[in-house]
Design a protein around this nucleic acid. Structure first.
Lengths: 242, 242
DNA sequence: ATGAATTGACTAACATGTTAGATTGAATGC
DNA sequence: GCATTCAATCTAACATGTTAGTCAATTCAT
């Protein structure tokens, strides 16, 4: 018995958490970002219990900032707090993933349509610059590097509206989709398709065509869901029973 | 000096906070709802400092739940936490109000468009039922009662999508607009117009007309902003300097 | 073997003590 | 009279102690 407990402790202690110094802001905010990163990259598995004391020890902080961090994670839906019992990493839920995709689509469609009338030449140039960098990565097969550029492009579009909370909100809505994305590797041909979809969006914005911009954006965002839907059958243990 | 302080304390102690028992959930959640209600109804004025100790005393709780409540209010943008200095009720910001309106429009347009294809007969009946109740209130001039029905209708639309977070998110986005709304009384004729706009939305959904549903919803949501824009000039002390 | 009851370990929630940084306003120098 | 300094006072942030609810393993009765 003692041996089993010891093994669990070892497994958890050797778990790979980023150091607090990688992040900025209050201690609570740093802890929040550390935990969020760990949950999104599946270092903590869906359904797993989150041990406050272990986190305190590993990060060298007291329970206050950890509690505050967990409260924020709970409001985002990344963890599930059971009063007086424990905090658990949320299981995937296909309903929540679909809702996240819906919210993201709602926000991004509005952003794109807003930009159709208001985008500046400089902003357009930045988008094309980013698109060029994406193209340069097509043949390399470096999915991670490509994904960074991909995210960056969506961030650019959000920030160009000038609405400060929009980006945060979109990312927070998208978070479950983003976590699920880590479960499967993208197919090689998908990168080329993605770049084409991105180009369609930018061109429609440039052309000032509302309807086309909406269609291109919607089409692009709905691709990912297609790849995620089979996961519920392939990895049922990570999903909420429905 | 002592007299002045005493007067301030009296002013604050007689302030009208709802009792904790009006709300449910954890103590922290109750405190959050008490404070949120007070801020939205302008019991606490924009720019005013929020005294934790006073709140603790008045509600009979310790600082922990109050701190957690304030953290959530801060994430919503209703208060402004200055580290090691103080927490202040956020000033109005026309930019934030416009952003709130943008986000709400994005979400509600998506919801309405979603419902155009998926609404059930029973749901439509509920909307018409609500619309009838609105009509009954037109002549009475009871703005508060009408506003309850108005909010209820938008809630219905959001909930009919089946997306659980959508309603919360829309309300949270809208919160600054909602607070600003308390600053001016609606004009009597506006109620009739509002009901007409609501009817247009429902009819477009019923007709299954995407474009018309979008136009009707957008048109309706953009009315309120027109009434709010003059406030920045009429009540500059409540707004952030821009 | 099986199911209910119980107990003990674990946890979040809450209370309270401590620290450090910001603000304010009075005292000081010019 | 006016700017500057500096100390008293305020606050959020953080640490730690306490309480009470939950859960799971084990025991005990059947």
């Amino acid at each position: 018995m003692n041996i089993v407990i010891q093994m669990q402790k070892n497994n958890q202690n050797t778990r790979n958490l980023l150091p607090l110094t990688n992040f900025e802001g209050s201690l609570a905010n740093k802890v929040y970002l550390v935990l969020r990163t760990a949950i999104l990259s599946l270092v903590y598995h869906p359904g797993e219990i989150l041990r406050k004391r272990e986190i305190c020890g590993k990060l060298g902080v007291s329970r206050s900032p950890v509690s505050e961090a967990i409260a924020i994670l709970a409001s985002e839906g990344l963890v599930n707090v059971v009063p007086k019992a424990g905090t658990y990493v949320s299981l995937f839920s296909m309903d929540e993933i679909k809702e996240g995709a819906f919210l993201r689509e709602a926000l991004e469609l509005a952003a794109v349509e807003y930009l159709v009338d208001k985008i500046t030449d400089d902003q357009l140039a930045q988008l094309y610059q980013n698109l060029g960098e994406q193209e340069a990565l097509i043949s390399g097969g470096d999915f991670d590097a490509f994904y960074v550029k991909d995210s960056k492009m969506h961030e650019l579009i959000m920030s160009f509206t000038g609405f400060k909370r929009l980006r945060t909100l979109a990312e927070s809505s998208w978070v479950q989709v983003n976590r699920a994305r880590h479960l499967n590797l993208p197919s090689p041909g998908r990168i080329q398709e993605t770049v084409n979809e991105h180009r369609n969006i930018i061109k429609a914005i440039e052309a000032g065509n509302h309807q086309q911009a909406r269609t291109a954006t919607r089409n692009h965002l709905r691709q990912l869901i297609k790849y995620l839907e089979p996961l519920e059958i392939e990895r049922p243990e990570l999903f909420e029973p429905s």
